[in-house]
Every structure is written in C-alpha cells, then in structure tokens.
Design a protein around this nucleic acid. Structure first.
Lengths: 205, 205
DNA sequence: CAGACCCTTGACCGGATGGTCAAGGGCGGT
DNA sequence: ACCGCCCTTGACCATCCGGTCAAGGGTCTG
C-alpha cells in the first residue's frame, strides 16, 4: 500500500520535493495520463520503488500538486492584499498578484486546467475555485455596500475576474514565458475594473 | 491502417455520427485517456473493428470532434451577427450566441478545455482560439476607430471576453444544466461591455 | 561497533490498451 | 439470382502501466 505520513529525514524531504518538481514538469509537458510513473522515476534517476515510498499512488501525487498549488496562490494573493483597506485597491492588487503567481507557475496552472476537465479531480478544483471566488467576492460586496460599485452579484463578478485572469495568463503569458507579462496584467486589471463598474443596463447605442 | 475518406452509404454516415456522439459523451464524462476504444464500441453496441472502419485512430476521432466543435461555434456566432451593422451590438450578440452554444454543448467544451492542456492537441485549439479572437477583434477595432470605444488592444479585449464567457459557462452554466442560463449570460454581457468601455486609466479612488 | 530505521533497487505481476486482421454477413444494383 | 462492395465480428497481438515486494545499502544513534 501507500506511504501515508512517513517519518522523513531531511534527505527524504528533499527527495520528495524533487519528485514533485519533476512530475509537475512532466505532467504539464506530456500530459498526466501519457506520463507513466516509470517516466518520472527515470527522469529523477531512481528506482521505481522510490516513488511508492513517498506517494501512495500516481493519483495522490497529482492531487497533492493541485492542492499545494491552490493554497500557494491563495496565500500569495492574501499577502499582496494584507494591510490594504480600500476594497477597490484590494481588487486590483488581488488581480495583479494572482496573475503574477500564475505567470510564475505555468506548469501548475496547466495541471489545474487539466484536472478541472477530469471528473476524478474536478471536485477539488471546484472547491478551490469557489474559495478563490469567495475571497474576491468579499471586497466586492463591501464596495457595493459602500456605493463605490453598482449593484451586482459579487460571486458572478468574482468568477468573471477569474475567467479573464486565467485565460489571459494561459493564452498570452504562458505562450511566451520570456516576454514581460506587465502589459497583459495591466489590460486585465483595466478590463476587470471596467466590468465591475459597468452600470446595470449600460449598453450604449 | 486507417480509414481515410472511405465511401460511406447513408447507413455508414449514420453509424459514424453515432460513434462521434457516444464518444463525445464518454470522453467528457470519464476523460479522454481513461475511456478506451472498447468502452466506446461497447456503448454503441458493435464490435471493435467498426471503430477502425470509420476512424484511423482514437486520436483522430478526438481531433475531429474538436475541429467540428470549433467550426460549429464559429458558424453559430456568425449567423447571430449576420445583418447587424452596429459593432457594439455585434459584440453583444456575439457574446450571447457564443455562450448559448457553449451552454448547449457542454461535452464538447469540456473536451476543448482538456485538449488545450495536452500538447498533442493544443496547437489545433490555439488556432481555433486565435480565429475566435480575430472574429471578435474585428468589430472592436471598428468601434475603436469610430470613437465609440476607448483606445485599447482589440486582441487583448477579445481574449478577455473569451475568458469570461468560457469560464462562466464552464463553472456556472455547466454546473447545473437544467437551470436557466440567461442571468449568467446577461451578467457576462454587462461585465464584458463594461470592460470594453473602461477608460484607459480609470481606477477610481 | 551494533542495531535500527530510512531509503533504494529492479524484477515481477495481473490486467488493460490501441490497433490488426481473416472471415463472414447483408444490402444494393443489375 | 448473383455479384460486389459496404459493413461487422471478435479473437488476437505486442506493449505498456500502476503497483508490489523481497532484499540490500547507508546513515544516524547509542
């Protein structure tokens, strides 16, 4: 069976991190299913048993990568907002920091987008996305209550923002990892703030 | 080998459509890789050879599903815009019709989102997305030239819209296929129009 | 130096998978 | 009635995959 909560030495922790790093890259490059456990251990340069010493299954490894990625992005965003009071500025900083994290973790984002399409992993992804939407909806609700933003469903606005940031990150920033992501991030901020501030029935003729 | 351009009778065409329909559903429900060719032919109720009579490989079948889906959505959107002159109204109709198509083709959209994460299929998806972005960018460029919309990169705006519509469709509409998608679509239109009309540096304090 | 425990090896297993093929059924045209 | 081609069958193949395990090497502690 598995490995659940083994006592690891410093060397063991390091090996574990190494497997996670290599697997994340391979899964993102070749796909989760086409990448075998043998591919991973070969890339690391160890025997097959090593994998099952640290992880109970291939599926558990992906699940851990996904969970760690989602919590890391959330923490990154929270840190970026810490100390800021104004809810609209919180929104902007949240969008920026979120996109920066996604830009820096292309492989993890690819795996998250894959996992969202596979029913075995989708529930975990949906849960993380709901949390992200709630995080964004809180300042939105405050801004609406304060009259700074027109009346609207905060959850719908929050999910719209997630859609813009994820898609621009996946299609434009990840397409050319060496380019400067700043102009794309600026455009995302502008688009989202505009979308938030859109009047309830403003379709100009 | 494969099947390439076989001469099909009416009965053959029907069988072919049936395999595509069943495979689309199974691939979306269980995932492309976890679904075997045997699963597909069993669900159809035929022998395995039938599959390879109509398709050269499992991969070719998915490629065809993806290509057909992308062109169908594009045609649906073009039809919805036909005869409309005003570029802003074109945008709104494009957003609405696009989301309606996605809402009605949940399985195909799941496969498209999956394919975007697998390097073997991603190029085709990227090409279709570029076409979709170009389609949306054309009226945007016109509206900007006419001064109806503030100066901005039409391609970035177009991709932002794609991000909003795809994500809201995947997370909210597909989550409950029986619910009425209209409120979500209305919110998407409002958000996107607001994002398009956002002033170049409007982040209110 | 001895024991204990963390770590590693790599052959092995049962089962599944994509794809092939020789053979045969049946429909449409003549 | 007969022929030819579209369609179907399902056993078969080579290969690969996730996961197991008995055995042994290293390292730290006492």
């Amino acid at each position: 069976m598995g490995s659940e909560d083994r006592q690891l030495t410093a060397r063991g922790e390091e090996r574990r991190r190494q497997i996670i790093a290599v697997a994340t890259r391979l899964f993102a490059e070749r796909g989760y299913h086409p990448t075998s456990v043998a591919d991973v251990v070969d890339a690391v340069g160890v025997g097959k048993g090593v994998f099952y010493w640290y992880f109970p299954s291939k599926e558990a490894l992906l699940t851990e990568i996904l969970r760690a990625g989602q919590t890391a992005r959330r923490r990154h965003q929270r840190d970026a907002i810490a100390g800021v009071d104004d809810p609209v500025e919180q929104m902007e900083r949240g969008i920026r920091s979120g996109m920066e994290w996604m830009a820096a973790h292309r492989d993890v984002m690819t795996l998250i987008r894959f996992a969202a399409t596979e029913e075995r992993f989708a529930p975990g992804i949906r849960k993380g996305e709901a949390t992200a939407a709630d995080d964004a909806a809180a300042p939105l609700a405050r801004a609406i209550a304060e009259g700074r933003v027109p009346e609207a469903d905060p959850d719908l606005l929050a999910r719209s923002i997630v859609g813009v940031t994820q898609h621009l990150s996946a299609t434009l920033i990840h397409a050319d990892p060496d380019a400067d992501p700043t102009p794309v991030i600026d455009a995302a901020v502008r688009f989202c703030i505009g979308g938030i501030l859109a009047a309830p029935a403003t379709i100009p003729r």
